[in-house]
Design a protein around this nucleic acid. Sequence first.
DNA 1: GTGAACAAACAGAACAGTTGGTCTGTTCGT
DNA 2: ACGAACAGACCAACTGTTCTGTTTGTTCAC
Lengths: 201, 201
Amino acid sequence: MLDEPLLTAKGEATRRRIVAAATAEFAAYGIAGARIERIVAEARTNKAQLYAYFGGKERLFDAVFTASLERILEVVPIDADDLAGWAVRLYDEYLVRPDLIRLATWHRLERRPAGHLVPDTARLDTGKLTAIAAAQAAGRVVPGDPFDVMALVIAMSMAWSPVSNVYAATADEPEEVHRRRRDLLRRAVAGATGAVPSGRA
Amino acid sequence: MLDEPLLTAKGEATRRRIVAAATAEFAAYGIAGARIERIVAEARTNKAQLYAYFGGKERLFDAVFTASLERILEVVPIDADDLAGWAVRLYDEYLVRPDLIRLATWHRLERRPAGHLVPDTARLDTGKLTAIAAAQAAGRVVPGDPFDVMALVIAMSMAWSPVSNVYAATADEPEEVHRRRRDLLRRAVAGATGAVPSGRA
DNA sequence: GTGAACAAACAGAACAGTTGGTCTGTTCGT
DNA sequence: ACGAACAGACCAACTGTTCTGTTTGTTCAC
Protein backbone atom coordinates (compact mmCIF):
# COMPACT_ATOMS: atom_id res chain seq x y z
CA MET A 1 0.00 0.00 0.00
CA LEU A 2 2.83 2.32 0.79
CA ASP A 3 4.64 1.10 -2.29
CA GLU A 4 3.98 3.43 -5.10
CA PRO A 5 2.80 1.48 -8.11
CA LEU A 6 4.79 1.56 -11.30
CA LEU A 7 3.69 4.40 -13.47
CA THR A 8 2.52 4.06 -17.01
CA ALA A 9 2.66 7.01 -19.37
CA LYS A 10 -0.93 7.80 -18.58
CA GLY A 11 -0.34 7.54 -14.86
CA GLU A 12 2.67 9.81 -15.17
CA ALA A 13 0.53 12.39 -16.92
CA THR A 14 -2.07 12.21 -14.17
CA ARG A 15 0.63 12.50 -11.57
CA ARG A 16 1.89 15.64 -13.21
CA ARG A 17 -1.59 17.15 -13.39
CA ILE A 18 -1.96 16.47 -9.68
CA VAL A 19 1.31 18.21 -8.91
CA ALA A 20 0.32 21.20 -11.02
CA ALA A 21 -3.09 21.47 -9.41
CA ALA A 22 -1.68 20.95 -5.94
CA THR A 23 0.94 23.62 -6.50
CA ALA A 24 -1.74 26.17 -7.29
CA GLU A 25 -3.97 24.99 -4.47
CA PHE A 26 -1.28 24.96 -1.78
CA ALA A 27 0.10 28.29 -2.97
CA ALA A 28 -3.35 29.81 -2.68
CA TYR A 29 -4.58 28.27 0.57
CA GLY A 30 -1.64 26.73 2.40
CA ILE A 31 -1.55 23.25 3.87
CA ALA A 32 -4.41 23.64 6.32
CA GLY A 33 -6.54 25.55 3.84
CA ALA A 34 -5.94 23.39 0.78
CA ARG A 35 -8.72 21.01 -0.19
CA ILE A 36 -8.06 17.58 -1.65
CA GLU A 37 -11.44 17.77 -3.32
CA ARG A 38 -10.45 20.88 -5.26
CA ILE A 39 -7.09 19.43 -6.25
CA VAL A 40 -8.50 16.26 -7.78
CA ALA A 41 -11.23 18.24 -9.53
CA GLU A 42 -8.71 20.64 -11.01
CA ALA A 43 -6.44 17.76 -12.01
CA ARG A 44 -9.37 15.90 -13.59
CA THR A 45 -8.72 12.77 -11.56
CA ASN A 46 -9.90 11.25 -8.29
CA LYS A 47 -8.82 10.81 -4.73
CA ALA A 48 -7.75 7.20 -5.18
CA GLN A 49 -5.02 8.26 -7.59
CA LEU A 50 -3.83 11.09 -5.43
CA TYR A 51 -3.50 8.84 -2.42
CA ALA A 52 -1.90 6.05 -4.44
CA TYR A 53 0.74 8.40 -5.84
CA PHE A 54 1.44 10.68 -2.92
CA GLY A 55 0.11 9.02 0.20
CA GLY A 56 -1.62 12.01 1.70
CA LYS A 57 -1.94 15.74 1.99
CA GLU A 58 1.28 16.39 3.88
CA ARG A 59 3.39 14.28 1.60
CA LEU A 60 1.78 15.83 -1.43
CA PHE A 61 2.86 19.20 -0.10
CA ASP A 62 6.37 17.83 0.35
CA ALA A 63 6.50 16.79 -3.28
CA VAL A 64 5.13 20.10 -4.47
CA PHE A 65 7.39 22.16 -2.27
CA THR A 66 10.67 20.43 -3.02
CA ALA A 67 9.91 20.51 -6.73
CA SER A 68 9.27 24.24 -6.56
CA LEU A 69 12.38 24.80 -4.51
CA GLU A 70 14.66 23.12 -6.99
CA ARG A 71 13.03 25.02 -9.77
CA ILE A 72 13.66 28.45 -8.32
CA LEU A 73 17.24 27.53 -7.50
CA GLU A 74 18.05 26.69 -11.07
CA VAL A 75 16.00 29.45 -12.68
CA VAL A 76 17.78 32.28 -10.90
CA PRO A 77 21.41 31.31 -10.30
CA ILE A 78 23.40 33.64 -8.13
CA ASP A 79 26.01 36.01 -9.52
CA ALA A 80 28.10 37.03 -6.53
CA ASP A 81 29.98 39.63 -8.57
CA ASP A 82 26.69 41.30 -9.39
CA LEU A 83 24.44 40.83 -6.40
CA ALA A 84 22.40 43.83 -7.48
CA GLY A 85 21.62 42.23 -10.81
CA TRP A 86 20.80 38.98 -9.08
CA ALA A 87 18.34 40.74 -6.78
CA VAL A 88 16.63 42.36 -9.74
CA ARG A 89 16.29 39.03 -11.49
CA LEU A 90 14.72 37.63 -8.33
CA TYR A 91 12.30 40.56 -8.27
CA ASP A 92 11.23 39.68 -11.80
CA GLU A 93 10.97 36.01 -10.99
CA TYR A 94 8.53 36.73 -8.17
CA LEU A 95 6.35 38.62 -10.62
CA VAL A 96 6.27 35.70 -13.02
CA ARG A 97 5.88 32.92 -10.48
CA PRO A 98 4.32 34.20 -7.28
CA ASP A 99 3.38 30.64 -6.33
CA LEU A 100 6.90 29.61 -5.47
CA ILE A 101 7.45 32.27 -2.83
CA ARG A 102 4.03 31.77 -1.40
CA LEU A 103 4.72 28.04 -1.13
CA ALA A 104 7.99 28.71 0.65
CA THR A 105 6.26 31.06 3.06
CA TRP A 106 3.46 28.64 3.84
CA HIS A 107 6.17 26.11 4.56
CA ARG A 108 7.85 28.56 6.89
CA LEU A 109 4.66 29.44 8.72
CA GLU A 110 3.10 26.02 8.97
CA ARG A 111 6.14 23.85 9.41
CA ARG A 112 9.39 25.61 10.26
CA PRO A 113 8.77 28.53 12.61
CA ALA A 114 12.47 28.97 13.31
CA GLY A 115 15.91 28.34 11.88
CA HIS A 116 16.65 27.30 8.35
CA LEU A 117 13.75 27.05 5.92
CA VAL A 118 14.93 23.61 4.84
CA PRO A 119 17.07 21.33 6.99
CA ASP A 120 19.81 20.62 4.47
CA THR A 121 20.58 24.19 3.59
CA ALA A 122 24.22 23.22 3.42
CA ARG A 123 23.80 21.26 0.23
CA LEU A 124 21.50 23.80 -1.40
CA ASP A 125 23.40 26.96 -0.60
CA THR A 126 27.00 25.87 -0.87
CA GLY A 127 27.33 27.30 -4.34
CA LYS A 128 25.92 30.66 -3.33
CA LEU A 129 28.06 30.88 -0.23
CA THR A 130 31.38 30.09 -1.85
CA ALA A 131 30.59 32.53 -4.64
CA ILE A 132 29.92 35.28 -2.14
CA ALA A 133 33.03 34.41 -0.14
CA ALA A 134 35.12 34.63 -3.29
CA ALA A 135 33.66 38.02 -4.18
CA GLN A 136 34.40 39.18 -0.66
CA ALA A 137 37.99 37.99 -0.89
CA ALA A 138 38.32 39.95 -4.11
CA GLY A 139 37.07 43.03 -2.29
CA ARG A 140 33.96 43.35 -4.39
CA VAL A 141 31.52 42.56 -1.58
CA VAL A 142 31.28 43.89 1.93
CA PRO A 143 32.83 41.55 4.54
CA GLY A 144 30.69 39.54 6.91
CA ASP A 145 29.22 36.05 7.11
CA PRO A 146 28.38 35.08 3.51
CA PHE A 147 25.21 33.44 4.72
CA ASP A 148 24.03 36.67 6.29
CA VAL A 149 24.88 38.61 3.16
CA MET A 150 22.85 36.16 1.12
CA ALA A 151 19.90 36.39 3.50
CA LEU A 152 20.02 40.16 3.31
CA VAL A 153 20.10 40.37 -0.47
CA ILE A 154 17.27 37.88 -0.79
CA ALA A 155 15.27 39.86 1.75
CA MET A 156 15.83 43.03 -0.26
CA SER A 157 14.72 41.33 -3.45
CA MET A 158 11.50 40.40 -1.67
CA ALA A 159 10.58 43.93 -0.61
CA TRP A 160 7.65 43.89 -3.05
CA SER A 161 7.22 40.13 -3.29
CA PRO A 162 3.87 38.32 -3.01
CA VAL A 163 4.55 37.87 0.69
CA SER A 164 5.70 41.41 1.43
CA ASN A 165 4.35 42.88 4.62
CA VAL A 166 4.10 46.24 2.94
CA TYR A 167 3.13 45.94 -0.69
CA ALA A 168 2.88 42.92 -2.99
CA ALA A 169 3.67 43.81 -6.58
CA THR A 170 1.96 42.08 -9.47
CA ALA A 171 2.88 41.64 -13.10
CA ASP A 172 -0.06 43.71 -14.31
CA GLU A 173 1.22 46.94 -12.84
CA PRO A 174 2.60 49.54 -15.27
CA GLU A 175 6.08 48.74 -16.51
CA GLU A 176 7.24 52.12 -15.33
CA VAL A 177 6.47 51.20 -11.75
CA HIS A 178 8.53 48.05 -12.03
CA ARG A 179 11.39 49.98 -13.57
CA ARG A 180 11.36 52.42 -10.69
CA ARG A 181 11.50 49.60 -8.16
CA ARG A 182 14.23 47.75 -10.04
CA ASP A 183 16.35 50.89 -10.14
CA LEU A 184 15.97 51.51 -6.45
CA LEU A 185 16.63 47.87 -5.67
CA ARG A 186 19.72 47.74 -7.85
CA ARG A 187 21.24 50.84 -6.34
CA ALA A 188 20.28 49.79 -2.83
CA VAL A 189 21.82 46.33 -3.11
CA ALA A 190 24.94 47.79 -4.62
CA GLY A 191 25.17 50.31 -1.82
CA ALA A 192 24.39 47.75 0.83
CA THR A 193 26.82 45.06 -0.27
CA GLY A 194 29.51 46.93 -2.17
CA ALA A 195 32.80 46.89 -0.31
CA VAL A 196 34.09 50.30 0.65
CA PRO A 197 37.42 50.76 -1.20
CA SER A 198 39.28 52.59 1.54
CA GLY A 199 38.99 55.04 4.43
CA ARG A 200 35.55 55.79 5.76
CA ALA A 201 32.36 55.93 3.76
CA MET B 1 -27.45 39.08 17.96
CA LEU B 2 -24.99 41.16 16.09
CA ASP B 3 -25.13 43.75 18.82
CA GLU B 4 -22.33 43.15 21.19
CA PRO B 5 -23.64 43.15 24.75
CA LEU B 6 -22.42 45.74 27.17
CA LEU B 7 -19.32 44.59 28.88
CA THR B 8 -18.88 44.36 32.61
CA ALA B 9 -15.43 44.36 34.15
CA LYS B 10 -15.48 40.62 34.22
CA GLY B 11 -16.61 40.40 30.63
CA GLU B 12 -13.89 42.78 29.60
CA ALA B 13 -11.31 40.57 31.27
CA THR B 14 -12.65 37.53 29.45
CA ARG B 15 -12.62 39.43 26.21
CA ARG B 16 -9.00 40.28 26.73
CA ARG B 17 -8.10 36.69 27.52
CA ILE B 18 -9.77 35.65 24.29
CA VAL B 19 -7.78 38.20 22.31
CA ALA B 20 -4.56 37.04 23.92
CA ALA B 21 -5.29 33.38 23.29
CA ALA B 22 -6.48 34.07 19.75
CA THR B 23 -3.35 36.06 19.00
CA ALA B 24 -1.18 33.12 19.93
CA GLU B 25 -3.41 30.66 18.12
CA PHE B 26 -3.69 32.62 14.89
CA ALA B 27 0.00 33.42 14.92
CA ALA B 28 0.80 29.75 15.26
CA TYR B 29 -1.72 28.22 12.86
CA GLY B 30 -3.18 30.96 10.69
CA ILE B 31 -6.86 31.50 10.02
CA ALA B 32 -7.59 28.15 8.42
CA GLY B 33 -5.47 26.25 10.91
CA ALA B 34 -6.63 27.99 14.07
CA ARG B 35 -9.09 26.11 16.24
CA ILE B 36 -11.86 27.86 18.13
CA GLU B 37 -11.82 24.98 20.58
CA ARG B 38 -8.17 25.63 21.49
CA ILE B 39 -8.73 29.34 21.82
CA VAL B 40 -11.57 29.08 24.32
CA ALA B 41 -9.69 26.42 26.27
CA GLU B 42 -6.59 28.59 26.48
CA ALA B 43 -8.68 31.62 27.43
CA ARG B 44 -10.54 29.61 30.09
CA THR B 45 -13.94 30.48 28.66
CA ASN B 46 -16.41 28.98 26.21
CA LYS B 47 -17.60 29.35 22.67
CA ALA B 48 -20.74 31.28 23.64
CA GLN B 49 -18.64 34.14 24.94
CA LEU B 50 -16.34 34.16 21.98
CA TYR B 51 -19.21 34.32 19.54
CA ALA B 52 -21.07 36.91 21.60
CA TYR B 53 -18.04 39.18 21.69
CA PHE B 54 -16.53 38.69 18.27
CA GLY B 55 -19.15 37.10 16.05
CA GLY B 56 -16.98 34.49 14.44
CA LYS B 57 -13.57 33.27 13.47
CA GLU B 58 -12.90 35.74 10.69
CA ARG B 59 -13.97 38.72 12.72
CA LEU B 60 -11.96 37.51 15.67
CA PHE B 61 -8.93 37.49 13.43
CA ASP B 62 -9.76 41.03 12.35
CA ALA B 63 -9.77 42.17 15.94
CA VAL B 64 -6.54 40.38 16.74
CA PHE B 65 -4.80 41.59 13.63
CA THR B 66 -5.69 45.26 13.82
CA ALA B 67 -4.77 45.32 17.49
CA SER B 68 -1.38 43.83 16.71
CA LEU B 69 -0.86 46.20 13.83
CA GLU B 70 -1.43 49.28 15.93
CA ARG B 71 0.83 47.90 18.56
CA ILE B 72 3.82 47.41 16.30
CA LEU B 73 3.34 50.85 14.78
CA GLU B 74 3.61 52.57 18.10
CA VAL B 75 6.31 50.35 19.58
CA VAL B 76 8.84 51.01 16.83
CA PRO B 77 8.35 54.56 15.53
CA ILE B 78 10.30 55.47 12.45
CA ASP B 79 13.34 57.70 12.54
CA ALA B 80 13.86 58.82 8.96
CA ASP B 81 17.16 60.46 9.82
CA ASP B 82 18.44 57.13 11.10
CA LEU B 83 16.83 54.45 8.99
CA ALA B 84 19.64 52.06 9.89
CA GLY B 85 18.87 52.41 13.57
CA TRP B 86 15.19 51.99 12.87
CA ALA B 87 15.85 48.75 10.97
CA VAL B 88 17.89 47.40 13.85
CA ARG B 89 15.14 48.22 16.31
CA LEU B 90 12.71 46.36 14.08
CA TYR B 91 15.09 43.38 14.02
CA ASP B 92 15.00 43.32 17.80
CA GLU B 93 11.25 43.73 17.91
CA TYR B 94 10.79 40.63 15.76
CA LEU B 95 12.88 38.67 18.23
CA VAL B 96 10.73 39.77 21.13
CA ARG B 97 7.35 39.48 19.46
CA PRO B 98 7.45 37.02 16.57
CA ASP B 99 3.67 36.73 16.70
CA LEU B 100 3.04 40.12 15.18
CA ILE B 101 4.97 39.47 11.98
CA ARG B 102 3.54 36.03 11.66
CA LEU B 103 0.06 37.47 12.03
CA ALA B 104 0.75 40.03 9.33
CA THR B 105 2.06 37.34 7.03
CA TRP B 106 -0.90 35.06 7.57
CA HIS B 107 -3.05 38.04 6.72
CA ARG B 108 -1.06 38.57 3.55
CA LEU B 109 -1.24 34.95 2.48
CA GLU B 110 -4.80 34.18 3.40
CA ARG B 111 -6.49 37.46 2.64
CA ARG B 112 -4.50 39.97 0.61
CA PRO B 113 -2.46 38.20 -2.05
CA ALA B 114 -1.61 41.48 -3.79
CA GLY B 115 -1.25 45.19 -3.21
CA HIS B 116 -1.19 46.91 0.13
CA LEU B 117 -1.26 44.73 3.23
CA VAL B 118 -4.04 46.85 4.66
CA PRO B 119 -6.41 48.95 2.57
CA ASP B 120 -5.99 52.25 4.36
CA THR B 121 -2.22 52.37 4.23
CA ALA B 122 -2.50 56.09 3.65
CA ARG B 123 -3.59 56.81 7.19
CA LEU B 124 -1.14 54.40 8.77
CA ASP B 125 1.96 55.32 6.83
CA THR B 126 1.59 59.05 6.36
CA GLY B 127 3.90 59.78 9.23
CA LYS B 128 6.60 57.48 7.93
CA LEU B 129 6.35 58.79 4.40
CA THR B 130 6.56 62.46 5.23
CA ALA B 131 9.49 61.76 7.53
CA ILE B 132 11.33 59.98 4.76
CA ALA B 133 10.47 62.69 2.25
CA ALA B 134 11.85 65.32 4.61
CA ALA B 135 15.07 63.37 5.08
CA GLN B 136 15.37 63.06 1.32
CA ALA B 137 14.88 66.79 0.85
CA ALA B 138 17.65 67.37 3.37
CA GLY B 139 19.89 65.08 1.32
CA ARG B 140 20.23 62.49 4.04
CA VAL B 141 18.35 59.75 2.23
CA VAL B 142 18.63 58.46 -1.30
CA PRO B 143 15.98 59.90 -3.64
CA GLY B 144 13.09 57.80 -4.88
CA ASP B 145 9.49 57.13 -3.93
CA PRO B 146 9.39 57.34 -0.11
CA PHE B 147 6.99 54.44 -0.06
CA ASP B 148 9.45 52.24 -1.92
CA VAL B 149 12.27 53.29 0.38
CA MET B 150 10.14 52.36 3.35
CA ALA B 151 9.24 48.99 1.87
CA LEU B 152 12.89 48.30 1.19
CA VAL B 153 14.12 49.14 4.67
CA ILE B 154 11.37 47.09 6.26
CA ALA B 155 12.25 44.19 3.99
CA MET B 156 15.89 44.45 5.04
CA SER B 157 14.94 44.46 8.69
CA MET B 158 13.05 41.21 8.08
CA ALA B 159 15.98 39.32 6.56
CA TRP B 160 16.10 37.06 9.65
CA SER B 161 12.51 37.56 10.79
CA PRO B 162 10.16 34.72 11.80
CA VAL B 163 8.86 34.66 8.24
CA SER B 164 12.22 34.81 6.48
CA ASN B 165 12.55 32.50 3.53
CA VAL B 166 16.16 31.87 4.44
CA TYR B 167 16.66 31.80 8.18
CA ALA B 168 14.37 32.74 11.05
CA ALA B 169 16.30 34.07 14.02
CA THR B 170 15.14 33.46 17.58
CA ALA B 171 15.83 35.22 20.83
CA ASP B 172 17.64 32.24 22.30
CA GLU B 173 20.53 32.41 19.88
CA PRO B 174 23.86 33.68 21.25
CA GLU B 175 24.00 37.43 21.65
CA GLU B 176 27.09 37.53 19.52
CA VAL B 177 25.15 36.22 16.54
CA HIS B 178 22.56 38.95 16.94
CA ARG B 179 25.28 41.56 17.21
CA ARG B 180 26.84 40.36 13.99
CA ARG B 181 23.51 40.57 12.17
CA ARG B 182 22.69 43.99 13.61
CA ASP B 183 26.04 45.33 12.46
CA LEU B 184 25.61 44.03 8.97
CA LEU B 185 22.04 45.30 8.86
CA ARG B 186 22.99 48.73 10.11
CA ARG B 187 25.80 49.14 7.62
CA ALA B 188 23.72 47.72 4.80
CA VAL B 189 20.76 50.01 5.40
CA ALA B 190 23.07 52.98 5.69
CA GLY B 191 24.76 52.02 2.44
CA ALA B 192 21.48 51.30 0.71
CA THR B 193 19.63 54.44 1.69
CA GLY B 194 22.33 56.98 2.40
CA ALA B 195 22.36 59.73 -0.21
CA VAL B 196 25.58 60.03 -2.15
CA PRO B 197 26.99 63.49 -1.38
CA SER B 198 28.38 64.24 -4.80
CA GLY B 199 30.05 62.78 -7.89
CA ARG B 200 29.95 59.02 -8.32
CA ALA B 201 29.92 56.41 -5.60
C1' DG C 1 -3.15 -12.50 -34.17
C1' DT C 2 -5.94 -13.30 -30.20
C1' DG C 3 -7.75 -13.66 -25.99
C1' DA C 4 -7.02 -14.76 -21.17
C1' DA C 5 -4.80 -12.61 -17.19
C1' DC C 6 -3.07 -9.21 -14.49
C1' DA C 7 -2.00 -4.69 -12.88
C1' DA C 8 -2.79 -0.03 -13.13
C1' DA C 9 -6.22 3.81 -13.78
C1' DC C 10 -10.41 5.29 -12.60
C1' DA C 11 -14.99 6.77 -10.42
C1' DG C 12 -17.60 7.48 -6.71
C1' DA C 13 -19.70 5.92 -2.47
C1' DA C 14 -18.79 5.42 2.30
C1' DC C 15 -16.68 6.49 6.78
C1' DA C 16 -14.98 8.37 10.88
C1' DG C 17 -13.40 12.31 13.00
C1' DT C 18 -13.45 17.14 13.32
C1' DT C 19 -15.08 21.95 13.18
C1' DG C 20 -17.48 26.31 13.29
C1' DG C 21 -21.44 27.73 15.07
C1' DT C 22 -25.96 27.49 17.92
C1' DC C 23 -29.12 26.39 21.73
C1' DT C 24 -30.67 25.43 26.42
C1' DG C 25 -30.25 26.06 30.83
C1' DT C 26 -27.65 27.70 35.07
C1' DT C 27 -24.93 30.98 37.91
C1' DC C 28 -23.45 35.46 39.20
C1' DG C 29 -23.44 40.34 40.18
C1' DT C 30 -25.89 44.33 41.09
C1' DA D 1 -35.27 40.43 39.33
C1' DC D 2 -32.91 41.24 35.39
C1' DG D 3 -29.26 40.98 32.24
C1' DA D 4 -24.70 39.48 31.56
C1' DA D 5 -21.41 35.56 32.14
C1' DC D 6 -20.96 30.99 31.80
C1' DA D 7 -20.87 25.80 30.78
C1' DG D 8 -21.55 22.24 27.96
C1' DA D 9 -24.45 19.60 24.97
C1' DC D 10 -25.86 19.66 20.30
C1' DC D 11 -25.89 20.00 15.25
C1' DA D 12 -25.10 20.23 10.50
C1' DA D 13 -21.59 20.50 7.33
C1' DC D 14 -17.25 19.38 5.86
C1' DT D 15 -12.74 16.89 5.25
C1' DG D 16 -9.07 13.62 4.80
C1' DT D 17 -8.89 8.97 3.96
C1' DT D 18 -10.35 4.28 2.70
C1' DC D 19 -13.05 0.87 0.25
C1' DT D 20 -15.63 -1.38 -3.47
C1' DG D 21 -16.24 -2.14 -7.93
C1' DT D 22 -15.37 -1.04 -12.97
C1' DT D 23 -12.62 0.09 -17.04
C1' DT D 24 -8.43 0.30 -19.58
C1' DG D 25 -4.00 -0.99 -21.28
C1' DT D 26 -0.30 -4.32 -21.67
C1' DT D 27 1.76 -8.92 -21.65
C1' DC D 28 2.30 -13.33 -23.26
C1' DA D 29 1.10 -18.20 -24.10
C1' DC D 30 -0.92 -20.34 -27.81
